[in-house]
Nucleic acid binder design. Structure first.
Lengths: 252, 252
DNA sequence: CGCTTGATTGATGCAAGTCAATTATGGTGG
DNA sequence: CCACCATAATTGACTTGCATCAATCAAGCG
């Protein structure tokens, strides 16, 4: 079964953080770096399928994803599940929902993940001592909002085919700009058709038939438990969506 | 047609702000109040139907709703519209989406609205001089996120009847805790069935038939362009959702 | 090698969309 | 004051996208 393996003290000090070197991320000032180094109190490594955050429970910690893929979701009483968004390296986990109360969603790992651990308690000190980082937190939250807005538009108003195209284009794009694809040759999105179905608000069977249409058209390839986007531009056209260039983005 | 009537200087000074007196909102410290008073640069009053923010355009100002109802939405190229969320007194408008770029959604007034005007440029100074207000901004953004999460769950996984029940229960509850219902006897949600349809991701006709089922069951009453919730508890049961007690919440 | 998980496919049913018409209701200009 | 018009709500008939049910197939694994 899925397993949690917490490490503490941190194995990767913030000054050697691999994310800082990626073009897409804004670098820290020396002062900010000093603070973040003390803000980080450990690391967490989890296996695929591990549950990192449970809806309804208190969770005194925040995380920044260092490596790997995960997703946030909610479930109804009878088990119907809705995936809300995916989390990639550089994303802050645990900010969504009330800042200091029970978590309102769950988080699960898609691949092996490494996360930096922060403590919620020290957020006020972050805002007090480093206003620029406080600003970044709001920036990060409002970026998440804009993704959720787009997802809502997609589920509410796009057809099944458009939705599927949007989702895969969206994930492929995020993986690209995050630099997560740089290492290996194949650019695989690590999810099952069940995940796609639960993101799009469709049944598993209909999702399968919709993805089939996309792979029959050679827009993508579906592998055992993952997908590779072959023609990004055509996905954009089908979805009626195009990524906006974010430029550099902050992270904590 | 809808008309914009900007006022400047402000007609209601922050120390007399009617929102501050409502139980649901956290009060400012004297220092915070002093800052917010200078942060507010004017007021905006708009008629029902007025467009306050346009997707794709730069918008150098932020607003806090003083009075009235509005909503945020996005549209696809062919005109399909998705309402993302509703805005009520105390809500901050313009924080969603990138903080300093083009707006990623539009905002329209449902009723006559009054809004306090702030300038985006001065956000950094807010974070620098009043960390507690910076924290509040992040809190507000993450509250919006949790509403969007719930909407996503609703549109993605609830049936038409459950969705309708959820939406009306949600709006009725927000109106209650905001104190917007305190004035008049009738507690009317000021929207048309087209708004409901565009929020739930349903067609107008199907929305009408779904709302009919709810009013036939005497759970609510549909009026000319609005709805009154008659049995809140039964709506909660149908929706499989219950509001969480937020306690006091911050606002700017 | 049997077991489990994920992908696939066909048959059938229903929820929701589309089309089209009718009924309020209120506003407006002659 | 009323004929006219626009907006909103309503209803019935028909169509379709997606769900559900039920198998089958492929691959990895203890």
């Amino acid at each position: 079964m899925a397993q949690m393996k917490p490490f503490s003290p941190p194995r990767i000090p913030c000054n050697l953080c691999p994310l800082r070197r990626r073009e897409n991320f804004r670098d820290f000032t020396p002062e900010e770096l000093g603070f973040v180094s003390t803000f980080k109190i450990g690391e967490l490594a989890v296996d695929p399928g591990a549950t990192i955050i449970v809806e309804g429970e208190m969770h005194p910690q925040l995380y920044t994803v260092l490596a790997g893929w995960g997703f946030r979701y909610k479930i109804l009483e009878d088990g119907r599940r809705q995936i809300l968004n995916y989390i990639l390296p550089g994303d802050l986990v645990g900010l969504q929902g009330n800042l200091m109360r029970e978590m309102l969603h769950s988080v699960e790992a898609l691949t092996r993940m490494t996360l930096c651990i922060f403590e919620r308690d020290r957020l006020t000190s972050l805002f007090r001592k480093h206003p620029s980082l406080g600003y970044d937190l709001t920036w990060i939250a409002s970026r998440e909002e804009s993704m959720l807005d787009e997802h809502l538009l997609s589920i509410g108003r796009r057809t099944a085919l458009e939705r599927a195209a949007y989702l895969l284009a969206f994930l492929d794009h995020r993986a690209h700009v995050t630099g997560i694809f740089n290492e290996d040759g194949a650019k695989i999105l690590p999810l099952t058709q069940q995940h796609v179905a639960d993101t799009l608000g469709l049944s598993l069977v209909h999702t399968n038939k919709t993805l089939r249409r996309l792979s029959d058209a050679n827009v993508l390839r579906w592998l055992d438990r993952g997908s590779e986007v072959l023609e990004r531009e055509r996905l954009f056209d089908i979805a009626g969506w195009r990524p906006t260039d974010e430029g550099q983005r902050p992270f904590i």
